[in-house]
């Protein structure tokens, strides 16, 4: 093989170059697909509207019952926690405190806990 002619190797080199170019193209295409996928999954996975809806429901509860503890309010509280666990797979809990003076207005401290296995949300809000 001593007299092997190496003149033709540029063809293989060209082939390699083309292959490399394709490889990078594929990388870019893959990334662009990932952008859309992660956005959509991020939006679907993060329960933004669920948490907002739960807050509204709890504020409605506070409007209606305040911090009283009686069978009626306990029943509504149990509705929210039981149905959340059963239908939304989320552990939900909330407490309503006695009204405090917050810049001249009597507001109740409300703590909200939400956990659906992926997203955990805790909040203390004066309402």
């Amino acid at each position: 093989m001593a007299c092997m002619n190496e003149d033709g190797q540029w063809i293989v080199l060209m082939g390699l170059l083309a292959a490399l170019a394709l490889f990078f193209l594929a990388l870019i295409i893959n990334q662009s697909a990932l952008v859309g996928q992660t956005t959509a999954e991020g939006v679907l996975e993060f329960p933004k509207s669920d948490i907002r809806d739960l807050r509204t429901a709890i504020f409605d509860y506070v409007d209606k019952f305040g911090n009283t503890v009686d069978p009626d309010s306990q029943a509504v509280r149990e509705d929210i926690t039981r149905i959340s666990l059963e239908r939304k797979n989320a552990v939900v809990g909330f407490t309503v405190g006695t009204p405090q003076d917050v810049s001249g207005r009597p507001l109740r401290p409300v703590t909200i806990h939400y956990y659906n296995g992926v997203t955990e949300y805790d909040e203390t809000v004066y309402y």
Partner: peptide
Amino acid sequence: LYTMEGVAAGVIMLLTVYIV
């Protein structure tokens, strides 16, 4: 030799496309 290298280059490119 030229033929062989042409075939080699072709195989490399086609394989990459397949992988991509």
